[in-house]
């Protein structure tokens, strides 16, 4: 007779600290990755382009969640930091740098800019810091628009699709694999940070900065690290963005983008890596879903689309308010509850 364990029992700390602790988890991740790899072959290129946008949004959301959700430093300038990376990588790429170097370079430039705008965080908290990062947003937008010798100003900046070792990622499906790989690395990086010394220190700063200081966390250094790492990843997202869309203009990185990243982490779940992924997917798909709804209703009530289309922004806002009221911990909590439910199914006690 063979006995099976009715739960997870660890015999080493290392096993318990592992990322995927059960065979089932590994299997699920494997299946998910296999599905992702097969997807571009199964759906049309429009759907792949949406997927690409989701993946780029995932990097943006997960990096903002590191800064705002984990470290508690409110940022209204994240869209601009993505923009810095987008312009930085595009300029480097146009100057002849290989794609990987341009991507990392864009991230590094964004990290430096982010750290400079993170300096006020030593003194400012909460809403006051939010306003100072709003200033960062406005200043950077101004730079994108007026440093036209570098950024092309209002005319925008064309970029060639990425090339690695002579292989051009010039279709939606090809670049999908590249974006997927970079996104996976970024998500893994943030997950690792969240479960180690630095992530704990970030949360400590968020939850009680005075006691964080007394256990030896240098508040200023760690806040700057949070700003730096978050902006670096935002810059990487921007670099992918500019190389993917092949044309960037200042208005793409406006206040609205910053707000939609905030919406992603609120809807997904503050401080949660998986929540950032859900949130990014949700917010990116929301307009697509509305379009789908409008076009499917088009046959029944053609006049309706004229009413609904302008209401898109309103629906976006409404979703945010509903989430804040009914699920303030976001989709991450829903995910947790669903998992807990199925773990016990059919004996829910």
């Amino acid at each position: 007779m063979s006995m099976h364990k009715c739960g997870l029992f660890y015999t080493t700390y290392a096993a318990e600290d592992g990322l995927f602790r059960s065979r089932f988890q590994k299997l699920c991740l494997g299946l998910f990755l296999a599905a992702m790899l097969a997807l571009p072959q199964l759906v049309d290129s429009y759907a792949v382009s949406i997927l690409n946008l989701i993946l780029i949004a995932v990097i943006g959301a997960v990096s903002l969640n590191l800064l705002t959700g984990m470290c508690g430093q409110m940022s209204l300038g994240h869209g601009a930091f993505v923009g810095v990376g987008a312009y930085g990588a595009a300029i480097l790429s146009n100057a002849g740098a290989p794609f990987v170097a341009a991507l990392l370079g864009g991230g590094a430039i964004s990290a430096m800019v982010g750290m400079v705008f993170g300096i006020p965080s030593l003194r400012l908290k909460g809403i006051y810091l939010a306003i100072s990062t709003l200033a960062a947003q406005l200043i950077l937008e101004y730079v994108f628009l007026h440093a036209s010798s570098l950024t092309g100003g209002a005319n925008g900046l064309p970029v060639d699709p990425p090339q690695i070792l002579g292989f051009a990622f010039d279709t939606d499906a090809r670049i999908f694999y590249l974006i997927l790989a970079v996104t996976a690395l970024c998500v893994l990086a943030v997950t690792n940070v969240s479960r180690t010394r630095h992530g704990r220190a970030f949360v400590a700063i968020r939850d009680y900065h005075q006691s964080a200081e007394n256990v030896g966390v240098n508040l200023f250094a760690y806040k700057l690290q949070a700003f730096g790492l978050s902006s670096f990843l935002a810059g990487v997202a921007g670099g992918l963005w500019s190389h993917y869309t092949m044309y960037i203009t200042p208005e793409q990185f406006s206040m609205g983008l910053s707000i939609s990243y905030l919406a992603m982490i609120i809807i997904g779940g503050m401080g949660s890596v998986i929540g950032s992924i859900f949130g990014a997917a949700f917010i990116t798909l929301l307009p697509e879903m509305l379009n789908l709804l409008i076009s499917s209703l088009g046959g029944i009530a053609p006049d309706l689309s004229a009413v609904i289309v302008p209401m898109k922004e309103g629906v976006f806002g409404l979703m945010l308010v509903l989430f804040l009221i009914f699920e303030p911990e976001g989709l991450a909590r829903k995910w947790r509850l669903t998992k807990a439910y199925w773990k016990l199914y059919p004996f829910a006690y």
């Binding site: 990086a189 690792n192 010394r197 704990r200 220190a201 949360v203 006691s211 964080a212």
Partner: peptide, 28 residues
């Protein structure tokens, strides 16, 4: 003045913050 969002274990691990020596890159 606990870190309310962290588990008991993680609260104590933060308490050892200055005894852990690795840097941000090692964290990543």
């Amino acid at each position: 003045a606990l870190f309310r969002g962290l588990s008991v274990l993680d609260n104590l691990m933060v308490g050892r913050h200055s005894r852990l020596g690795y840097g941000l890159l090692a964290s990543i």
